[in-house]
């Protein structure tokens, strides 16, 4: 870990302003991902701006009947919130499917959206990695890629966005609220928040330099049966091979976002539209144009089968 300076921000615009003018500055909230990466010098910020005093840790009703979740609301607090559990069950379910209790007590809403890939080659600093060291190449392509992406990837990077919470936010049409150094606020639909890797896999979101997430808002509840189904190699404390976040309505229509396969929570409008026709049709549309490796082509089958299980659960009333 490289030496760094540290300050506690006093307001969100101030934090953004400091970040914009300080080379190598990073925000820190729970630090559950950033600190690990700093120890390996995959992240080497010169300056840390701690957000814990900003009081961004509240969950409030919005005027239009939705919910505004402060950026530093912890995963544990969010998953336990009665309104979330009642009206946005897919979100509570997705959160508790991730990490461990201890990590969820520290990890925050905004930090979770910004967590970086778990590709093992990204983590091994001896290996080429375009995400860690742009232009160095991708060791994962042609390597051990069982966990990695099958769609939305590129010739430069086949890593995935590893999160669970983001899948739920994607089906709920969440909006990310930010503030920048000038105090300007903007709202970024979750669909536009993460980027596909393309030739620049080191740029993972559409946040501008210094731009700070202040909240995530949810539109008013959409009803339906909320399900989060995470398939992994062990029963707990592992990243998804494939995960499905779904909200299914009594008439069979619904929405789905799939994790473990792409650089971002993977939702395709045509696949949503095809849900009443069953898992096979929806999965085919969701994965149109996928480019799996020999190691991870099983994910194509797994997406379809997991979705079938989700739809069966929805039909049986399992979910919330």
């Amino acid at each position: 870990m490289k030496p760094f300076t540290y300050q506690r921000a006093t307001s969100a615009p101030d934090a953004a302003a400091v970040a914009a003018r300080t080379p190598g500055a990073r925000f820190i909230a729970g630090g559950t991902n950033l600190l690990d990466l700093m120890k390996l010098e995959i992240e080497a910020p010169a300056h840390l701006i701690d957000l814990q005093d900003l009081r961004l840790d509240r969950i409030q009703r919005t005027d239009d009947g939705g919910l505004r979740i402060g950026a530093t609301v912890t995963n544990s607090a969010l998953a336990a919130d009665p309104t979330v559990r009642r009206d946005y069950g897919v979100l509570a379910r997705a959160i508790v499917a991730g990490a461990s209790g201890q990590l969820r007590n520290k990890a925050t809403t905004a930090g979770n959206l910004l967590q970086r890939t778990r590709c093992p080659y990204f983590y091994d600093t001896n290996m080429p990695c375009n995400k860690r060291l742009p232009g160095s190449g991708c060791a994962a392509i042609g390597g051990f890629s069982r966990q990695l992406g099958i769609i939305g990837t590129s010739d430069a990077c086949i890593a995935t966005y590893p999160g669970d919470m983001g899948q739920a936010l994607r089906v709920l049409d969440a909006v990310v609220e930010t503030v920048n150094a000038l105090g300007d606020v903007r709202s970024i639909p979750i669909a536009d928040f993460h980027r596909l890797w393309g030739d620049t896999p080191h740029i993972e979101t559409n946040l501008q330099a210094g731009e700070l997430i202040t909240a995530v808002t949810l539109p008013k509840p959409i009803g339906g049966t909320h399900i989060y189904r995470k398939v992994r190699d062990r029963a707990s404390y592992a990243f998804a091979l494939v995960s499905v976040a779904a909200v299914i309505q009594p008439d069979g229509t619904g929405r789905l976002s799939v994790g473990g396969i792409a650089p971002k929570p993977w939702r395709v409008a045509a696949a949503d539209d095809a849900l009443p026709g069953g898992a096979r049709a929806a999965a085919a549309l969701l994965l149109a144009g996928s480019r799996p490796t020999e190691d991870n082509k099983f994910k194509v089958t797994l997406v379809e089968r997991t979705l079938a299980g989700v739809l069966a659960d929805a039909q049986a009333g399992k979910g919330s």
Binding site: R118, F144, R234, S236, A238, F239
Partner: peptide, 25 residues
């Protein structure tokens, strides 16, 4: 321990990548 046969090493060389059973298993 997953072998990278090009670079000659065990790729999943931490306890996040090398999964052992947890209580829930």
């Amino acid at each position: 321990l997953a072998v990278d046969k090009r670079f000659g090493f065990f790729v999943n060389h931490d306890l996040a990548g090398y999964e052992v059973p947890v209580h829930a298993d």
